[in-house]
Design a protein around this nucleic acid. Structure first.
Length: 434
RNA sequence: GUGGCUAUAGCUCAACAGGUUAGAGCGCCGGUUUGUGGUACCGGAGGUUGUGGGUUCGAGCCCCAUUAGCCACCCCA
């Protein structure tokens, strides 16, 4: 094993990895909270699966031809020489768990939710890192289009409840195996005569993954793509009815969607409904994406089980949220700052710290600081609503001073009643602040 | 994996055309005020200029390599 020395003696995060510092972590937490609230309301239960799985699981599910598998997975041999990979996406592991734990014998559909980190060895770029957090929903055992619509509705509600502006839902259907064969042929037949015009990437994709051409950002290729007739025209009557019904349910729920006749997605396992949710105009990438994968459970060795799911990028949502919120902080600030002057006072302060925190009040105290001035200044910077002051005089008298930081008014109360007095003076809406 | 741009203090940036000891603002710590915050003033800490090599009398600045960051493609959340 080679080691790469850091000559300067400074360690730093690995490429594409990031520390999420308190300011951002608070925004992540807000997004996660919004997700879990919606998941609960829709009856999705949390599941946690390992970050490490057999490499073959992803090869089978995501698809050998996909870029994710052949160039973006963190794959290595473990100590018993088995090929293992860090999960590049969430659905495969959850589907594996469904089969492994015989969840087909549970009342169907089985609805599962997760929120965890994914790993892809890619070149970092705006909105894309090698480690990223994703939350997702998976519903197994229902081929009803209402389930497709429910998954979309739930994702939409998460984003909408965060107040994100300009949300749009794009929907399409790739159909089942039979329809997909026709769709592939349609793309190949339309693009092949104009091969000279399209990008090198598109030429390559023509052979191994024609659906991918639809996403090309190359101008000339896009013009060719525009000429491809809507994919839905190739759907079998069953597939078409399924899509129509799903769209009707979206209308029932007042979800503003648009049919994107050329929407496709990067995983091989998608069938029928596919969708993406985009944030404000000009966004570089989708906030959420998903679709139906009726063949996956069987592919992984289970009995034929229809399923539909979605994944949402927490970082991208956080960025959208921050753009909307401006400089507003998502951090909660402590409610009380405890100031102590002198050794005896410090001991009193420490007991009070225990009592207050036990009573559910958030307290900050800088035990290393000595002067009152510095402590008060810090209390101000933290934006606490109350400062509690225990000096030598108060320590002698078993009392404390409660200072209201916004009015500057202060009052001396007995130490015994301190917790009660503090609680009575705390503003009701203490929490996150502008 | 491909292409372009960039790298100076914790952050945002200076440093004329290579020329003494690399500066400022913000932030942090302290003081003016040894028991009272926000303003003001004063002081302090903090840099091997990403790393390694080269050119030169002399490199933050020029050249090469490397690492990382940003942006776009591929792909995707």
């Amino acid at each position: 094993m080679s080691t790469s020395p850091q000559p300067s003696g400074q360690y730093q995060t690995l490429r594409g990895m990031r520390d999420i510092l308190p300011e951002d972590a608070a925004a992540y937490r807000a997004v996660e909270d919004a997700f879990w609230a919606v998941a609960r309301n829709h009856g999705f239960d949390e599941i946690r699966t390992p970050v490490l799985e057999a490499t073959d699981l992803f090869v089978r599910s995501v698809g050998e031809a996909s870029d994710i598998v052949h160039k973006e997975m963190y794959t290595f041999k473990d100590r018993s020489d088995s090929s293992v990979s860090l999960r590049p996406e969430g659905t495969a592991g959850v589907a594996r768990a469904y089969v492994e734990h015989g969840m087909k014998s549970l009342p169907q559909p089985v609805k599962l939710a997760y929120c965890c980190n994914m790993y892809r060895y890619e070149r970092p770029q705006a909105g894309r890192f090698r480690e990223h957090e994703q939350f997702g929903l998976e519903a197994f055992g229902s081929d009803d289009p209402a389930t497709d619509a429910q998954v979309i509705l739930a994702c939409w509600q998460v984003l909408a409840s965060l107040g994100l502006p300009g949300l749009t839902v794009q929907v399409n259907s790739l159909g089942g195996a039979e329809s997909q064969k026709k769709i592939r042929r349609l793309i190949v037949d339309t693009v092949t005569p104009q091969q000279e015009r399209v990008s090198d990437d598109a030429k390559r994709q023509l052979k191994d993954n024609p659906l991918r051409i639809l996403d090309s950002k190359d101008q000339a290729t896009r013009e060719v793509v525009e000429q491809i007739p809507p994919l839905v025209d190739q759907l079998t009557p069953d597939d078409r009815d399924h899509l129509t019904a799903a769209l009707e349910y979206l209308e029932q729920a007042d979800i503003p969607y648009e049919l994107n006749p050329h929407l496709a997605r990067g995983f091989d396992y998608y069938t029928r409904t596919v969708f993406e949710i985009w944030g404000s105009e000009g966004a570089a990438a989708a906030l959420a994406g998903g679709g139906r994968y009726d063949g996956l459970i069987r592919e992984l060795g289970g009995t034929d089980t229809p399923a539909v799911g979605a994944g949402c990028g927490v970082y991208r949502i956080v960025e959208a949220l921050k753009a909307k919120a401006g400089k507003k902080s998502f951090r909660s600030r402590p409610q009380v700052y405890l100031i102590q002057l002198g050794d005896v006072a410090k001991r009193h302060a420490f007991s009070l710290l225990g009592e207050l925190t036990q009573a559910g009040v958030s307290v900050t105290a800088a035990f290393g600081k000595e002067g009152i001035r510095g402590q008060l200044r810090q209390a101000d910077k933290l934006g606490v609503s109350l400062a509690l002051i225990i000096g030598q005089k108060e320590a002698m008298e078993n009392s404390i001073i409660i200072r209201d930081m916004s009015s500057g008014m202060q009052e001396t109360v007995s130490l015994k009643k301190a917790v009660e007095e503090v609680q009575g003076r705390l503003p009701k809406d203490a929490g996150t602040v502008a």
